[in-house]
């Protein structure tokens, strides 16, 4: 493939703009570990950071209270992501923020990649700016929580779907289906509400396979097999930690608790909403008709893309209306616990 000098200069400018944006974004989301060590977000940050440190130091995924060991609330996916960061930066609790910052940067780069593949570099930059300027995305990137890594995984799955759409070889398609299965399974390990994303990804995969006329059964079987294989360790873990393979940490710790002020984190965001926000933003940038159809169908499937913009508008009117925005966002599928 050959590029004209003007094209090369444009690509270089886009690269420089992306680097500047990434640096500006990292500065915006940078929370020093000393401040991140506060772990303020109710039980969430505590039950991610402390079991991850204990897993690294003692080999046990537990929180210790008065000498008694308790399993964490969430599945162990995010703890696994946190471990290498604690290994590299040290076991001070606040260092877990580095994992979140890295995954939010990854989400940004994945957004650029997806948009670059589908609508070109200028609009890709715009899509990246849209995500980078999302105040709630920045808010979530300053918390030791699994929300941002889940977004990165979801965007990675979307990128794989686009690559599958573009690939011409059956072997590559099978490999991408397997990778997609692993990513989807790991999203479940990050948070069980990711289960709403699995059928969406599966439908999109089937859609790609139907359009490419490469056969559905084998790639879909590989996808389902990989999702199950990645998810199986969680069932075994639940069996040992909570007494039954079907009992989750949420059931054990939270669900039987009466609704009160401590259960307000329903207003937190999920990758589904980010995905909708991203796709909604992307669809406005004037897409390649082929990709537009694909994302359009996803938006139709979710059916609430426009609501996101309404909520952003409401929240911009006044900070006091943030809860109203939270209520609106809560209506998204999978948008709460």
């Amino acid at each position: 493939m050959s590029y004209s000098p003007a094209g090369r200069r444009g690509a270089a400018l886009a690269g420089v703009a992306l680097v500047i944006l990434a640096v500006l974004y990292l500065w915006l989301v940078n929370v020093p570990p000393y401040y991140a060590a506060n772990l303020r977000t109710l039980h969430d940050e505590v039950q991610y950071a402390i079991p991850a440190i204990n897993l690294l130091a003692k080999g046990r995924l537990v929180m210790v209270m008065n000498g008694v060991e308790y399993p964490p609330v969430s599945p162990f996916g995010f703890h696994i992501i946190l471990m290498p960061f604690y290994r590299i930066f040290g076991t001070m609790v606040g260092n877990g923020i580095r994992a979140v910052q890295a995954s939010s940067l990854l989400a940004l780069l994945l957004t650029f990649s997806i948009a670059f593949l589908s609508v070109g570099r200028k609009r890709a930059l715009l899509a990246t700016v849209l995500l980078a300027a999302n105040p709630i995305f920045i808010y979530q990137s300053g918390k030791i929580m699994a929300t941002t890594p889940r977004l990165a995984f979801f965007l990675a799955a979307l990128l794989l779907l686009l690559l599958a759409w573009r690939s011409k070889r059956r072997g590559v398609l099978l490999f991408l289906s397997a990778l997609l299965g692993f990513l989807s399974g790991f999203m479940l390990l990050l948070h069980l509400s990711s289960i709403v994303l699995i059928p969406i990804i599966l439908i999109l995969l089937i859609y790609v396979l139907v359009k490419k006329k490469t056969g559905i059964i084998i790639p879909v079987s590989i996808y389902i097999l990989l999702v199950s294989a990645t998810f199986l360790p969680l069932l075994l873990y639940q069996s040992s930690a909570y007494g039954s393979w079907s009992t989750t940490g949420y059931q054990t710790w939270i669900w039987s608790r009466p609704f009160g002020e401590d259960t307000l984190p329903v207003f937190s965001l999920s990758p589904t909403r980010y995905g909708v926000a991203f796709l909604d933003g992307l669809s406005k940038t004037g897409m390649d008709p082929r990709i537009s159809r694909l994302t359009g169908r996803l938006l139709d499937l979710i059916g609430l893309g426009k609501l996101y913009n309404v909520s952003v508008f409401i929240a911009r009117l006044s900070v006091r209306l943030y809860r109203v925005r939270g209520c609106i966002l809560f209506m998204f599928p999978g948008g709460g616990r």
């Binding site: 039980h43 008065n66 608790r257 009466p258």
Partner: peptide, 14 residues
């Protein structure tokens, strides 16, 4: 009793 992680469901741990 409303402190985080003070109970598992309705069961008080401490």
């Amino acid at each position: 009793a409303r402190v985080n992680l003070a109970r598992q469901g309705k069961k008080l741990l401490f």
